[in-house]
Write a protein that binds this DNA or RNA. Structure first.
Length: 310
DNA sequence: ATCTGTTTATAAATTG
DNA sequence: CAATTTATAAACAGAT
């Protein structure tokens, strides 16, 4: 047909929307999540069209990432440093392009929620970064998950907009809001999402955060009693961790109760301080949430790592 | 400085 | 056609 352009076929704009291109990139990845730069790379690698005007389309793509609920942001673990977060597909977004058109979805995926507040980060705990130590081990929740109803229709903010200074969202990191508001026990949420919740982990979670044992919707609301049994959260999120040099670290280690059942390992000291210890031998890292990692040492001493909290 | 990420605004394209 | 979805631009905050 009349081909006005002088571009070769491969240089033509691919018939895919940014959403589909991004989804392709993410699904193509082993862990079903990619940092922004790798999404760029994926697209540029296979579509020559996008090797030009990068400024333009990358801005559009970033816009799509944060604008569309079908993409969720997963904080990096402190032991996997790098720029930006990982991006994944919301597990509930299903087959957005089942109609065969990658240009336009049949309908926009929107996270169910109460009118006002947007809390896109609420379902963030669907994915956890996995260690690469065991290549055979797949990420716990890649792709389809049974629907998780917990955070549907959750009020994330008071209609009035006023937020008590001790409102949970002012105390804890934003990423926790969804969990906090889910109305479910954290461990059951984790289990439901396919995360292996061992009895040991479960009891530990419950002993560390009794109040989390029953996540209540009200915790996502306005105020938290001043007395607040939520102290552990406020400590870990509010408190800033200063190392010996007086630097403020992005993560706040919170000592937790030792578990006597585990014996000490010779030659290793307990976890007391900074990030350096995280990857030491004898340390088990249990991602509880993408931005919350439980580090357990064989000695039974542990750390709760909160990161991405500012 | 550059890269990420969020947000608002507006135009264009597609569908029913 | 109107409603919805996508594309682009741009301002801006934060992080590295």
């Amino acid at each position: 047909m009349p081909r006005p352009g002088k571009n070769s076929y491969s240089d033509q704009k691919p018939p895919y929307s940014y959403i589909s291109l991004t989804a392709m990139a993410i699904q193509n990845s082993a862990e079903k999540m990619l940092p922004l730069s790798d999404i760029y790379k994926f697209i540029m690698d296979r579509f020559p069209y996008y090797r030009e005007n990068t400024q333009r389309w990358q801005n559009s793509l970033r816009h799509n990432l944060s604008f569309n609920d079908c993409f969720i942001k997963i904080p990096r673990r402190p032991d996997q440093p790098g720029k930006g977060s990982f991006w994944a597909l919301h597990p509930d977004c299903g087959d957005m392009f089942e109609n065969g058109s990658f240009l336009r979805r049949r309908k926009r995926f929107k996270v169910l929620r109460a009118e006002h507040m947007t809390c896109k980060s609420s379902p963030m705990m669907h994915y956890f970064h996995h260690h690469h130590h065991h290549p055979g081990t797949a990420p716990p929740n890649v792709g389809r998950l049974p629907h998780f109803q917990g955070y549907g229709g959750i009020t994330c903010a008071q209609p009035g907009g006023f937020k008590h200074p001790f409102a949970i969202e002012n105390i804890i990191g934003r990423d926790y809001k969804g969990v906090m508001a889910s109305g479910l026990p954290l461990t059951s949420v984790m289990h439901h999402l396919g995360y292996p919740v061992t009895p040991q982990l479960s009891s530990m979670v419950n002993s560390m955060w009794p109040h989390v044992g029953m996540l209540s919707e009200s915790m996502g609301g306005v105020s938290v009693p001043a007395s607040s049994e939520y102290a552990p959260f406020s400590v870990s999120a509010k408190g800033l961790y200063h190392n010996a040099n007086g630097q403020t670290l992005p993560a706040v280690p919170v000592p937790i109760k030792p578990t006597p059942s585990l014996g000490p390992v010779p030659g290793l000291t307990g976890l007391q301080s900074g990030p350096a210890q995280i990857c030491s031998p004898g340390v088990i890292m249990q991602p509880l949430l993408p931005s919350m990692i439980l580090c357990l040492h064989n000695t039974g001493v542990g750390c709760l790592w909160n990161h991405n909290i500012t």
